[in-house]
């Protein structure tokens, strides 16, 4: 099993790499489209901000490669910014994104007593069943660190939800593409369990 890690800028892939190593998966850094060939699945991690991420993807031609990958049966997992840019648009510097899952990333509205960014552990509640959450209790804690949240256009894409002033989609899916707003690579045992589920997942092309 070889997992591609999408590298679109001096981003920190180390944490995801370490978690996959713990799970016994080999990784390959994908910094140009050709390196996607022959992979079993791919992870699109991310920290930082949406516009810079999109610019870096376009520069490397990875935007089109990811769109093509999303139409195949090869599973793709987006994490945090990697989740947000899979949507059509982000309110962060009004950025046009990949549009692989229809929807928008929105900034948390200000609310008394709620800090922005949301930093820390929050519960993830399942909506329906998805292989990504197999064996993971409903309401298990995952680590979040974000100021924007994904809002899918269709309820069908909405796999799990979390409450932070608003109820937002903390996990999304469409065909062979899944995306999580939290950081599974930093979410202890349940995060590792989710990554293991992703590695075992047999997706169908959308």
């Amino acid at each position: 099993m070889v997992v591609g890690l999408i590298d679109y800028k001096a981003g920190n892939l180390g944490s995801v790499e370490n978690a996959l190593a713990r799970l016994g998966a080999a990784t390959r850094i994908v910094d140009r489209p050709e390196r996607l060939a022959g992979l079993d699945r791919a992870i699109f991690p991310g920290v930082g901000e949406a516009r810079a991420a999109m610019e870096a993807l376009r520069e490397r031609g990875l935007d089109r490669a990811l769109a093509a990958l999303s139409r195949s049966a090869t599973p793709l997992l987006g994490i945090c910014i990697g989740c947000q840019v899979l949507l059509g648009r982000s309110e962060e510097r009004d950025t046009e994104c990949l549009g692989i899952i229809a929807g928008t990333s929105r900034r948390f509205p200000p609310a008394p007593g709620l800090k922005i960014p949301q930093i820390g552990w929050n519960q993830v509640y399942h909506r329906g069943r998805h292989a990504l959450f197999r064996g993971i209790p409903d309401g298990a804690s995952f680590y979040f660190d974000h100021s924007y949240y994904p809002e899918p256009a269709s309820a069908e894409a909405w796999v799990a939800e979390t409450d932070y002033g608003v109820r937002f989609a903390s996990a999304l899916a469409r065909g062979s593409v899944v995306a999580v707003q939290f950081h599974p690579e930093k979410s202890g045992r349940w995060g590792l369990a989710l990554l293991a589920n992703f590695l075992a997942w047999r997706a169908e092309a959308s």
Partner: peptide, 8 residues
């Protein structure tokens, strides 16, 4: 540390 712990 990063190889062994999976919290931030």
């Amino acid at each position: 540390v990063a190889e062994r712990i999976f919290v931030p």
